[in-house]
Write a protein that binds this DNA or RNA. Structure first.
Lengths: 216, 216, 216, 216
DNA sequence: TATGAATGAGACTTCATTCAT
DNA sequence: AATGAATGAAGTCTCATTCAT
């Protein structure tokens, strides 16, 4: 009998659980989704909380304010991707052409078609509201990304694969169709015909771009 | 009698200027600025009103709601530009190469470096909030713009200037660096080095793009 | 018929009225009552608003914040009383004894038994929360009040009515039973027996105090 | 087996100290400090807990609620002082004059300059919030204190030391400068000049008061 | 036509209280 | 016995919208 009670107690589903360690990541993931969908100002913390499976108050155990949550979303989710790209470039042994193609496809695989795609959209929309965060993002993501690609292009110019061009400008032109597609795909998701084919878009970009930059 | 009325009108010193005709355009211009700067949710109608030189209440004499104002900003400011582009293409007599270049530069002149640059940014940011407006924008601006460029590319393929490619995809690739630059320039205005040179960006885009799509 | 409509329109009681000029004073009066009753932290602005016959939002048209409202309550209601006391003393031509008695009774008439009685209570309770306001109150009310009374006592000493004592200390001792009664009466209103007689308290204080300070 | 248990106990380093007996007093002391400093509504139980060296949850092991804690602070800290005063009076063998002076000085020694000084302040500030507690305090502290002093004065009248006066009123007048000083000293601590001399205030009060009440 | 005072719904944030650990 | 993560009610403050003037 005592045992029965014990068992019932043990089995009884607790109303909530302590998850001190997992909560921040769960909250960040939920916040990313909602911020991307609604924008910063229109996001209600109650929605973020609900999506993370907690209540409003809990958010404040882990983040000081809505603004702090927003900043954490950007700061903590995007930088690792850049690092991955840099590591990829360092380890790569093939031609510059191949590396450009590889980086483009990786960007899409890691950002364009994942939840991270929301980050560029957020920054475009909210940059003016968070100047400090924007500076961080511009330095640690935008510029660093461009430099990564510029390095590859420079290698290609040096070894004769590519025509001589301003490498930073060329890097921006390699990335901008990707970033635009990332942002626009989310914005116009409901409008796009089923026939729109991202892979074809990527393939054609790579084709035209490499065709355009290659010697001869 | 008519004279009496006239006299009364003339005598009465109006407390406010009647500007029934000019007001809407002034309000739309002010609203565009503020919406672009702050986003829809963070925009205060009082700010819009102040920038237009009137007070809150006046906005409601011309627009039913903040949402209606926002929709009007988008609907009434962007469509004319597309029409201009289409007219340009119809009238153009040179090569497809030249027309592509011309359209790119015109986009920048008419949108990229004017107040209209805010519209694409707004749509990226607020698309999810206004599905109906987004559908309108996608059909009447995005798709129509792409079709315009696609027609030019098709012409180039047919007359042997360009390699055979999917014309809608190629059109998107011709435009996306422009649109991305339009949006990003606003977002990162405060971060960009003085050395960033838009003309060089446009020149290089045209150069690489045409180089990439041209036969041979 | 048209006239009937007009009349009905004119008669119809408006849902609210514009009272730009009267509102601040009405709000301050309502706020004083509620702050005194509940204390600063436990006061809800909605209560203040309701008591002033408006809604929450209206309070913010006239005061920046709850804190600003609190400070205004103190700053704008108490100083005039001190000035009145000072004027009284200046104009008085009788003996020091008579003036002490007169000031004591005036304090009670103007503060002790009016809504202003709440101010000393508020300051005792909230001093630690508003250091700057407390400094203001201490300088402009407490000290100024003490100096006023000290001046009278000094006059009494000089003309031989009173024994030589430290005039500031004696002034404080003339006032403290008044202020304490002011504060305690509110706090213990519901506990005090009907038999408690403020006039007797004042009479006895004046009697004992003057008896104590008078020569011989 | 018993040994095994012992060993396990000895080895296990207890995460918390068991202090079932000391805790309540520690919590009451901490609570008194914070309640006095901030007022009831603005006091956070987390602050009280921290000052007592425990955490929020622990408070609830000893007190049912914030309100219960507040009431306990008042009920359990002040009554003993009254009892001390009563004992002092009973045991006193000197003149009424001397006893009045002695009680005044004892009040200051035991309340005015100790942590207990906060209690009167608290009651002034929070009386309206806790009617039942206020009734208790009024009966068991205020009235009892007044009766104590009134008894002494009555003794003085009977044996011819004092003039015939209403003894309860006179008792209140003996105490009110003390209580006011107790409360005001805390409130205006930061404003008071270093030159303010409590002893002189007490001395003068005793001097004037006894001078005023003494026969001839 | 224009104003801006007034409204009131709604969001962020705090914190007393509970309860899983 | 003690902790502190989680809850959720409640309050401050904002701002789109209305309406008396």
């Amino acid at each position: 009998m005592a045992q029965a009670v014990t068992q019932r107690k043990r089995r009884a589903k607790p109303r909530w659980q302590r998850r001190k360690d997992e909560r921040p990541a769960e909250l960040l993931a939920a916040a990313l989704e909602v911020f991307v969908e609604k924008g910063f100002a229109a996001t209600k913390l109650a929605d973020v909380a609900r999506r993370a499976g907690v209540t409003k108050g809990t958010v404040y155990l882990y983040f000081d304010s809505k603004e702090a949550l927003f900043k954490a979303v950007v700061r903590e989710t995007i930088v690792p991707v850049i690092a991955q790209g840099e590591a990829l470039a360092r380890a790569f042994t093939g031609s510059a052409r191949e590396l450009v193609e590889r980086l483009v496809r990786e960007y899409w695989r890691l950002v364009g078609e994942t939840a991270l795609a929301g980050i560029p959209k957020l920054m475009m929309a909210e940059a003016a509201t968070f100047p400090e965060l924007t500076r961080f993002y511009y330095d640690e993501v935008v510029t660093r990304g461009h430099r990564l690609m510029a390095g590859v292009i420079e290698r290609g110019i040096k070894n004769g694969e590519f025509r001589p061009v301003d490498v930073m400008v060329a890097a921006k032109l390699a990335m901008s169709p990707l970033i635009h597609a990332t942002v626009a795909r989310r914005a116009f998701a409901s409008c796009m015909p089923e026939t729109f084919n991202v892979q074809q878009y990527l393939d054609t970009h790579i084709d035209l771009y490499l065709h355009g930059i290659t010697t001869q």
